[in-house]
């Protein structure tokens, strides 16, 4: 009898934890995700990308020559990315979305906020 009631309590506790965590994950924003933008052949691929605040965007340079991904108003900047180097930037709500390469100003692309 004693053993049975411990079992019931345990079952209840497990149920409670499961419910609470289920409710929490419904209430919270979806998990922030990581996006990768490759720089290949003097192009950002993809050149438009839908992101949400809290996400991380990682630029990785696959070209021989260094590039940057720099906001039009300079508010974010990966800094110099040599071949195979990468930098991640966390998306914020009021972030500038269009960016370019400081070294090669004809290279342009943009993010869009969901």
């Amino acid at each position: 009898m004693v053993r049975n009631s411990i079992g019931v309590y345990l079952l209840f506790a497990v149920f409670l934890i499961w419910t609470v965590s289920a409710v929490q994950s419904v209430a919270a924003e979806p998990d922030p995700s990581e996006h990768i933008i490759e720089i290949v052949g003097f192009k950002y691929i993809p050149d438009t990308l839908s992101v949400k605040a809290g996400d991380t965007v990682v630029w990785i340079n696959k070209d021989i020559v260094p590039h940057t991904a720099t906001a039009d108003d300079l508010s974010f900047d990966t800094g110099e990315l040599k071949k195979d180097e990468s930098t991640g930037i966390v998306v914020t709500k009021d972030m500038t979305l269009s960016y370019y390469c400081i070294y090669h100003p004809s290279m342009r692309a943009s993010l869009s906020l969901e």
Binding site: I64, P66, H104
Partner: peptide, 16 residues
Amino acid sequence: EFAKTMIRDHEAVNEQ
């Protein structure tokens, strides 16, 4: 800026 890009890029190519 242009001249610095030329140095940076042509040096990178020659290195490769």
